[in-house]
Every structure is written in C-alpha cells, then in structure tokens.
C-alpha cells in the first residue's frame, strides 16, 4: 500500500510543483518507489520541472478515460530509478477529472508504489479538492507572506473536512508545513514573518524550511529537480525535508542569518 501525499497551498506561485518534484526525487533517491502526479489539468508544468516534457505521450486524463493504460502514460525518470511521472492533460475541459477515475488510478498505483505524490493545482476548486481527497498526508507549501499564510489556513480547513479520511471519520490527514522562499536576513531585520510566527498562526508541524535560493530557478531552467543539486542550500533543505517525511529527526538548517565575514565577502562562497 502506497502512502499518498498531496503537495498543496491554495495560493499559486509559492513552489508547489518545485516542492512536489524535489520531494518525489528525494524519496526515490532514498530507495522508495515513487510516482508524482500532476493534477493541474489544463496547465501542466510538472513535466517541465522534471525535465521530461518531450516524452509526454499520454496523460492522467487519457488514463481516466480509458484511452491509455497507466504503464503507457507514466514516464520513467531518466536520472533516478524507481521514479515515475504522470503528467496532467492540456485539455481545457474542467470536468475531465472524475472522482471515481482518480480513485481507480490511485488504487492501481497503490499496489505498485511506496509513495504517490499529488501535485495540486492552485486554488480551492475541483482540481485542488481531487488532488487532496484521497491523501494520507499533506505538505502545505507556504511563503512567509500574508496572502500565502491565509490561503494555507483555508487549505487546512479543507483538509480537515473535504477529504476521504475526514468523510469516513478515519484518522485525519497528517498535515505538514513546508515554508519556502525564506529569507533569514529579512527576517532578522523584521521585514519578513519568521518561521515560528507562521508555525504558530497555522498551528501545524514544520516539515521543512527552504531558503530563497538561486538554485531553484537554475534547477527549473534545466529541468532537473533541485534535490539533485546537493551543493545548494535549497537542495540540501529538500533532502532534510524528505528525511523528516520518512520519520527521521533532522535539525533545521538555513534559518539563521549569518553575517558575511570579510573573507567570504571578498572571495564569495558560502551561499550558492
């Protein structure tokens, strides 16, 4: 039985797809058979971030509508064994995803995989609700910024009411907070919410903290999930996040502002 994890946020542009790709890659690198599914029907992008956009033949909607089998639609990652991508469709038909269809796909995948990562679209519409409905755990991606925090709270409300676990009165979906685009220097000067504040306002556990990093754009430019860039702060922070998802106790890094010394100012280094 696979564990189903939805990566969600409410607000767009906070790093859902980047995080879904990075976490899926990290889980597979640790030897877990993992599939990452793009639920953003009409606006697929996970394939670009994973660097497999030219290998898309069939997609999630084709599978649901019986036009292709799962094995035809899933794309095997070129870099990591045990990692597969199920792309979203580019159709403009909003009702292309059905609840029964999604359930069947997840059930079929559950037999073969250890982890199923659902990359949710932004918003709280149908696509986002379907992405979270069957989840066992949720990674709520939040930026240290008011609208993102507020939207994350709305998503937490949906997770506790509009999921299969909630409706069947089973154990609730396990919620994790992932803070991205964190800027320790701005936090130090009081111009950015600090992680403790965000955690307190949303009152959920912190699973990871990804610093604002040049490595993220570099990774998406190249179509290589940032987890592969282990020299970068963001890459290491995602690796830590994956370890915590696997139940390990890993200390937090990259949350403190270190004033640059004269030497590193002259020679660069440190942050990459």
């Amino acid at each position: 039985m696979a564990k189903i994890i939805v990566v969600t946020s409410g607000k767009g542009g906070v790093g859902k797809t980047t995080s879904a790709a990075a976490i899926a890659t990290g889980l597979a690198l640790r030897g877990n058979k993992t599939v990452v599914i793009d639920f953003d029907v009409g606006l697929r992008n996970l394939d670009l971030i994973m660097g497999c956009e030219r290998r898309v033949v069939y997609d999630l909607v084709n599978v649901i509508q019986g036009e292709a089998g799962l094995n035809q639609a899933m794309i095997r990652d070129k870099r990591v064994d045990n990692l597969y991508i199920l792309p979203a469709s580019q159709t403009r038909d909003k009702d292309a995803l059905t609840s029964e269809g999604v359930e069947k796909v997840l059930d079929d995948l559950s037999r073969d995989f250890d982890y199923i990562i659902c990359d949710s679209p932004a918003g709280i519409e149908r696509g986002a609700q379907l992405a979270m409905y069957y989840a066992d755990e949720a990674v709520v991606v939040t930026n240290p910024e008011v609208s993102s925090v507020r939207d994350s709270d709305r998503i937490l409300g949906l997770l506790s009411a509009k999921t299969r676990r909630a409706e069947q009165k089973r154990d609730p979906v396990k919620e994790h907070l992932l803070i991205t685009r964190y800027h320790p220097e701005r936090v130090t000067y009081g111009d950015m919410l600090n992680l403790e504040d965000i955690r307190e306002i949303l009152s959920i556990n912190l699973i990871g903290l990804i610093p604002e990093s040049e490595a993220v754009l570099r990774a998406s430019n190249q179509g290589v999930p940032v987890t592969h860039d282990q020299k970068s702060d963001a890459g290491q922070a995602y690796t830590d996040t994956v370890s915590r998802l696997l139940g390990e106790d890993v200390p937090l890094r990259f949350h403190e502002f270190q004033k640059k010394g004269l030497l590193s100012r002259v020679f660069g280094g440190g942050r990459r």
């Binding site: 910024e145 008011v146 925090v149 507020r150 709270d153 709305r154 409300g157 936090v187 000067y189 009081g190 111009d191 950015m192 919410l193 600090n194 504040d197 306002i201 949303l202």
Partner: peptide, 17 residues
C-alpha cells in the same frame, strides 16, 4: 517592524476563518 504587523493581522483573520 512590518513582520509584526503581518503577524497581528494574520492572527485576527485566521481566527475568523
């Protein structure tokens, strides 16, 4: 500090939500 203003505003709106 703008961050503390943000925190106060968020606490109110989140409690309401």
């Amino acid at each position: 500090q703008s961050a503390s203003v943000a925190k106060e505003r968020l606490q109110i709106i989140v409690a309401h939500q």
